[in-house]
């Protein structure tokens, strides 16, 4: 019968990166494992080897300063409840706090949600709006990747097979909001999500859950009132259609929710 995957659980980052360099093609990095377990349960993947990051203490932690530093293995629930995050980056606490249930948030990690690049997850759009960067390490070195360049499409990232996200750095904003528009149960994933952040004269608006990757159009935010920007976003985005809403409906909601996010940002 089917062979069980090998379980690798290194206790240091160096060891993990060495293993990844050596076996990147067959080793699947595993953080909290919520996404991978769901795929494994449905037999959508059959990896030869699982590389667990759970024992690498250096990947945990939440630190504040000029920027917020979220360790890749920090759990959603830790981000949600961290007084430091709530105080300095309340919209980040909110975006992580509205993901699924407390159970999933107890398990899912900061690095995991970015590396999965699930189009309907809440945090990526918010991190993108705040101009956050993922720090990626490999045996060969380290680089910073803006979140909006990290996620390239449905479940696709610009990470190389030998790279791991080790940390996410989130700059401060003057104000930021996250709006999750659901069309069904409270437990549903968003039909349209809008993250918006204001820093000095710059306003960034990112729409999530409507396409393969967070939708950000800096040039559309430079002038015009909230309603106008909302309409521009609705025109610019080609949304998906699914059980949560058709493409045409999503366009209408994008116009409304972007406007509302900008109005909220102005308060």
């Amino acid at each position: 019968m089917r062979a069980a995957p090998e379980w690798l659980a290194p206790s240091s980052l160096e060891e993990a990166l060495a293993l990844l360099a050596e076996r990147g093609d067959e080793a699947l990095p595993l953080a909290g494992g919520t996404f991978l377990a769901a795929l494994l349960n449905q037999r959508l993947i059959e990896p030869a080897c699982l590389l667990s990051l759970a024992r690498i203490a250096a990947l945990g932690g939440i630190e504040g300063g000029e920027e917020l530093r979220l360790g890749a293995m920090a759990r959603h629930r830790d981000v949600e409840l961290s007084p430091l995050v709530r105080e300095g980056w309340p919209a980040v606490a909110r975006a992580f706090g509205v993901v699924a249930s407390p159970r999933v948030r107890n398990q899912a990690t900061v690095g995991g949600v970015l590396a999965d690049a699930d189009y309907a997850s809440d945090p990526p759009a918010m991190l993108c709006a705040l101009g956050a960067r993922a720090v990626a390490r490999s045996a060969a070195g380290v680089r910073e990747i803006p979140v909006e360049e990290l996620i390239t499409g449905y479940y696709e990232t610009s990470l190389r097979p030998d790279e791991l996200i080790v940390e996410v750095r989130v700059p401060r904003a003057d104000r930021a909001v996250y709006r999750k528009f659901r069309t069904r149960s409270h437990e549903d994933r968003p039909c349209v999500a809008v993250a918006a952040a204001r820093r000095g004269a710059e306003t960034r608006v990112v729409v999530g859950a409507v396409a393969g990757r967070p939708q950000h159009f800096p040039e559309l935010c430079r002038d015009g009132d909230a309603a106008e920007i909302g309409r521009r976003y609705a025109d610019a985005i080609e949304p998906i259609a699914d059980v949560r809403g058709s493409a045409a409906y999503r366009k209408r909601v994008i116009a409304v929710e972007v406007r509302r996010a900008l109005e909220e940002l102005a308060t």
Partner: peptide, 16 residues
């Protein structure tokens, strides 16, 4: 059927 799971087919929760 395109929504044959309890994420794509939602049922009411206590928050609803």
């Amino acid at each position: 059927v395109v929504n044959a799971n309890l994420s794509d087919y939602q049922i009411p929760s206590i928050a609803d």
